[in-house]
Amino acid sequence: MPAQVHRVRHRDLQTLHALKTLRPDRAYDAVSRDLLLREARLSMKISHPNVASVQTALRLADGRPALIAAWMPFTLSDCLNTQLFSPREIRQAMISILSGLEAVHAAGLVHADIAPDNLLLSREDLKDLKITDFGIALEQGERHADLDLIPAGHSTFSAPEQKAGMVLDGRADLYACGLILTLLLERCKGEGRVQEQLAVFAGHLSQQERKNRPQNASAALRLLMKIDI
């Protein structure tokens, strides 16, 4: 990967932040620099409690661009490896993800890399999940080929149309959400009606044909809210 993330502490405020910059060997790579700054521009379009947006961009002493965001020490991947979840926790996690995506899509963007590694938490509590890493996000009407990013994203969670190099819309992100919900359900405590409903919802999100998925994150969120705990 051309980028690296560091935990940094503000000297005066003593607050922790994430600093994302290029590896030293990519310091003068014009394409990598442009893509990192593009990520900042896209991310800063969004202000939502479930999106870990870039707070500011700066330039390091050696000339590398750097992005500053809130420091969140856990990812959903960490939780999937260590925890079991109640149906209520799983539903809340999906509400958080879809609410964040609703804001992403409202800004005219497709995240295109929704995966457990890109869902952050400040503590091991699924209520505060935040979407991060807009490195391969697209504006509506773009393809990754337009940015010379092939292949792009976590392939396990990439929708069929993304793997095919097509122009994407928000339904590509919903496909990834369906796979993430399936992973959460594999770590669910017990069995019952709610788990069955969530499993059906996961299948709806992760349909191979995008026309068979919900139209957007708002529609998906409305369907999820109908599943009563």
Rank of each mutant, 00 (worst) to 15 (best):
S86E: 11
S86A: 14
S86W: 03
S86Q: 14
P87W: 12
P87F: 06
P87V: 10
R88A: 15
E89R: 04
E89Q: 14
I90G: 04
I90F: 00
R91S: 06
R91C: 06
Q92D: 12
A93E: 07
A93L: 06
A93F: 08
M94L: 09
M94H: 01
M94I: 11
I95L: 13
I95D: 12
I95G: 01
I97A: 02
L98T: 00
L98A: 04
L98R: 01
L98K: 08
S99I: 10
S99V: 07
G100R: 06
L101I: 04
E102C: 10
A103I: 08
A103G: 04
V104H: 04
V104P: 00
H105R: 01
A106W: 09
G108M: 09
G108W: 03
G108C: 02
L109N: 05
L109A: 00
V110G: 04
V110D: 01
V110H: 00
H111P: 02
H111K: 07
A112V: 10
A112R: 10
A112M: 06
A112E: 00
A112G: 02
D113A: 02
I114M: 04
I114P: 00
I114Q: 04
A115V: 06
A115L: 01
D117T: 15
D117H: 13
D117M: 02
D117A: 15
N118K: 05
L119C: 10
L119Q: 11
L119V: 11
L120G: 05
L121G: 06
L121H: 13
S122F: 12
S122I: 05
R123P: 00
R123T: 15
E124C: 13
E124A: 13
D125L: 13
D125H: 12
D125T: 11
L126A: 04
K127F: 08
D128W: 04
K130A: 15
I131A: 05
I131W: 12
I131T: 09
I131V: 14
I131F: 02
